[in-house]
Write a protein that binds this DNA or RNA. Structure first.
Length: 256
DNA sequence: ATGGCTATGTAGCATAGA
């Protein structure tokens, strides 16, 4: 089963890219972030016509998550239980015996800002919830835009970014607490090219200059990781006209 | 060089992203 994540930065603008990409990459599950689309305006018919079922939790202007799947989406739930949050950032569903969690982790804006505090509080709630989810679902995958570059090799210029949001020690510590629960960063289970990134700033010709970060991740529970046969980033969509600033990441796992 | 793009909501720019 191929499972993917992609921050599309507006589903309305990126729908043609998404449909082209799923036709080419043929994922079984796709987690989307930053759909920026109210549920009433979600393009469900176009996605269903492409052969996917879909669940979504969105809002106007900001955030918004969705899960596409070739087969049935069971036990769909939105948000982190017990964590009050107006922002639509989490959606979970069970597909072929695999619990899929789609997450759009807060950006954090700047270290020390209110949004940074919110990011750390959010991550603490996320970790607590996943600790329980993992026990309930031994086959669980957590896919999404983490807005954290785990290690310096995930940053084009670690010196320039040192201590900044996306790489700061508390953010990385939160990421590695998820690893501490037993999750594997599927991308790093396999040999990868140097300077493998999933996001490049729209400005400064950052993509062409390979000035990116790896902040989109697929974390797998031990049971899923044991059956994982690959994980890769597809940079092709970033080369198109009007691209998302993020690219898809896809892993292959054994279905339940 | 602390900007630089892009998307949205809304009708000028402000906010946010990362």
């Amino acid at each position: 089963m191929r499972i993917a994540t992609w921050n599309v930065n507006s589903l309305k603008v990126r729908l043609p890219h998404l449909l082209d990409w799923v036709a080419r990459a043929t994922p079984d599950v796709v987690c989307l972030q930053e759909t920026k689309t109210e549920d009433a305006k979600f393009p469900a018919a176009d996605i269903e016509a492409a052969g996917y079922r879909v669940a979504f939790s969105g809002q106007k202007t900001y955030n918004g998550v969705a899960i596409l799947a070739k087969s049935e989406l069971g036990d769909v739930s939105a948000g982190i239980p017990g964590f009050e949050d107006e922002q639509k950032r989490v959606l979970a569903a069970t597909v072929q015996g695999v619990r899929i969690v789609c997450a759009y982790i807060p950006n954090g804006q700047a270290v020390g800002s209110d949004k940074y505090d919110y990011k750390l509080r959010w991550l603490a709630a996320f970790e607590a919830w996943l600790t329980a989810e993992m026990k309930a679902h031994p086959k669980i995958a957590v896919l999404g835009d983490y807005n954290i570059a785990p290690s310096d090799e995930d940053v084009h210029d670690p010196k320039a970014w040192e201590g900044q949001v996306l790489v700061s020690e508390p953010e990385r510590a939160a990421f590695f607490r998820l690893i501490g629960l037993g999750f594997k960063d599927s991308f790093r289970m396999f040999p990868q090219e140097e300077k493998s990134f999933s996001w490049w700033d729209y400005r400064m010709n950052a993509f062409k200059r390979k000035m990116g970060m790896r902040i989109d991740h697929i974390l797998l529970s031990p049971e899923l990781a044991a059956g994982c046969t690959g994980c890769s980033i597809d940079i092709e969509p970033r080369k198109l006209e009007r691209p998302s600033d993020h690219t898809p990441v896809m892993a292959e796992v054994k279905a339940g």
